[in-house]
Simulated assay, not measured.
Amino acid sequence: MRPPAFWHAGPGHPVARALAPLAALYGWRSAARMDRRGTPGPCPIVCIGNFTLGGAGKTPTALAVAGLLRDLGASPAFLTRGYGGRLAGPVRVDPDRHAAVDTGDEPLLLARFAPTIVARDRLAGAPHCIEAGADVIVMDDGLQSPALAKALSFAVVDAGVGVGNGRVFPAGPLRVPLARQWRHIHGLVLIGAGAPGETVAEDAAHRGLPVHRARLVPEGDWAGRRVLAFAGIGRPDKMFATLREAGADVVATRAFADHHPYGRAELGALAAEAERLGADLVTTRKDHVRLPPEFATRVTVLPVTLAFVDAGAVAAQLADILPRP
Results as ranks from 00 to 15, higher is better:
A265F: 04
G263M: 10
G263K: 13
E275C: 02
A246F: 02
G263T: 14
E273W: 03
R244H: 01
V251Y: 06
G247F: 04
G263D: 15
R264M: 11
G247V: 08
A248G: 12
R244F: 02
P261M: 11
A252K: 08
E273R: 15
H260L: 09
R254M: 00
F256G: 05
V250E: 09
E245Q: 14
A255K: 01
E273K: 15
A271E: 15
A246R: 13
A265P: 01
A271G: 13
A255G: 06
R244C: 04
G247L: 08
T253N: 02
D249G: 00
F256N: 06
D258W: 02
H259N: 10
V251E: 06
V250G: 06
E245N: 12
R244L: 03
H259E: 07
E275P: 00
A246Y: 05
G263R: 14
A257W: 00
G263I: 09
R264D: 15
G268A: 12
T253P: 02
A265N: 04
D249P: 00
H259S: 07
A252D: 14
L243C: 12
A272D: 08
E245H: 09
A271P: 09
G263W: 08
H260N: 11
L267Y: 05
F256T: 05
H259G: 08
T253Q: 04
L243R: 10
D249Q: 14
L270N: 03
A257E: 07
R244Y: 01
A272S: 10
H260R: 10
R244V: 06
R244K: 10
A255W: 00
R264G: 13
H260V: 10
G247Q: 11
A271M: 14
T253H: 02
A246Q: 11
D249V: 03
Y262G: 06
R254Y: 00
Y262V: 04
E266A: 11
A265L: 10
D258C: 11
D249I: 01
G247H: 07
A269V: 13
G268N: 07
Y262Q: 05
R254T: 02
P261H: 12
A272Y: 05
D249T: 05
F256S: 07
L243V: 11
E273N: 14
V251F: 05
R254A: 10
D258E: 08
R254K: 06
G268V: 09
R254H: 06
G247T: 11
P261E: 10
V251T: 11
R244M: 05
D249A: 14
H259K: 12
G263V: 08
E275N: 02
V251N: 08
Y262F: 15
A271T: 14
D249F: 07
A257T: 09
A252N: 10
A265M: 03
F256M: 06
A246N: 12
R254D: 01
A257C: 00
H259F: 04
A255I: 00
A248E: 13
R264S: 13
G247S: 09
A257P: 02
L267N: 09
H260E: 12
A246S: 14
T253F: 02
R254G: 00
E266P: 06
L243Y: 11
E245R: 15
A255T: 01
A255S: 14
A271K: 15
A272Q: 07
L243N: 08
E275D: 08
